[in-house]
Nucleic acid binder design. Structure first.
Lengths: 177, 177
DNA sequence: CGTCAAACGGACTCTGCCGTCCGCTTTTCG
DNA sequence: CGAAAAGCGGACGGCAGAGTCCGTTTGACG
């Protein structure tokens, strides 16, 4: 496999950029035609680099998830597990908030390795916080991501912080009576 | 407008039943063909009674929402606003749990009068509970429905009770420190 | 510069779905 | 019973989106 021709490289970059933008704005259901139009190429060019629309989606998601992975690594390295967890949640949500359609895209890539990796890291963060007593134990680590993701995804853009705040409150262990 | 022929009445009933079942199982995106197949009629018969697929969806939703409306009325009539709210939430979610796709169908019928009516009733229930001090005041009544609906909709079937429990905990006013 | 493989994109196919049409069947009612 | 009206559903049209084909263009390289 030799290197791509320079025009092909440029087009590939444009496609990835346009796809990231389009998926972020409109979610995973934007048509390939729309992406190609944004990239200024024919849609056949998209399919030459990515065998299916799904492959393109996964490529974009993997790219965007790198930032989240960095946040997760930092959270796992931090001293206070409880604070690390809430800070991780806020930072990650802040990222998703910039690209509103991304969450739905990630949902559709659950089988993807990269997505699984993030999920696994997130679970570790939760487990650490649970062991430290910062999160109630009657919910599985995986469900915590679900819960927060769902609330974030459904909240009106202006209100998501308050909604997430409420869930975080609910996740704290009930004070002993 | 004279009455329907008896065979037409029977088919109409079958279509409504099949549609309710299909929408509940598979969500609002089941094809009209699928519904017609379940009802044992041609899909043209469906379109004869309902001008569009959306009209059929709305009819089904209106029908199913009657039960929810009854719950809401009961909650508004109850003495303790706080208890009435939580009981209403649990009862309504129990209904949606039986027909998992229904929630998404309701989402798609937000403009429908019946849906608006339920939303309005739900808001009144929340307002009452807020006035009674059972729910924190830093969230709008409409957002409470959003929040609970989102969590319920995204939760794995076996876990939704726990997830809703957590949100309810988060919705209680923070204990004064 | 000239050749050739790589890349391009418009046109095409295929699939799934909504909604309509029209010739045939069934019910109704005198 | 028999005509008229109501109902039926298979076939059709149209649309949108995914993925393919192929004649044309363009960059790589001697």
């Amino acid at each position: 496999m030799t290197a791509l021709r320079v025009d092909a490289q440029r087009n590939l970059a444009r496609v990835l950029e346009a796809a990231a933008e389009a998926f972020a704005e409109r979610g995973p259901d934007v048509s390939v035609d729309e992406i190609a139009r944004r990239a200024g190429v024919g849609h056949a060019t998209v399919f030459r680099r990515f065998p299916t629309k799904d492959a393109l989606l996964r490529a974009v998601v993997r790219q965007r998830l790198d930032d989240v992975a960095a946040l997760a690594d930092a959270a796992l390295a931090a001293e206070s597990p409880g604070e690390a967890f809430t800070e991780y949640v806020w930072a990650a949500m802040e990222l998703y908030a910039r690209d509103r359609g991304l969450l739905e895209c990630v949902d559709r890539c659950l089988k993807d390795e990269k997505t699984q990796e993030i999920l696994s890291l997130s679970e570790q963060i939760v487990v650490r916080a649970q062991k430290a007593g910062a999160i109630r134990r009657d919910i599985s680590p995986g469900d915590v991501s679900n819960l927060i993701g769902a609330v974030f995804g459904a909240a009106p853009a202006a209100q998501w912080r308050r909604h997430v705040e409420i869930v975080l409150d609910g996740l704290r262990p009930p004070k002993p009576v």
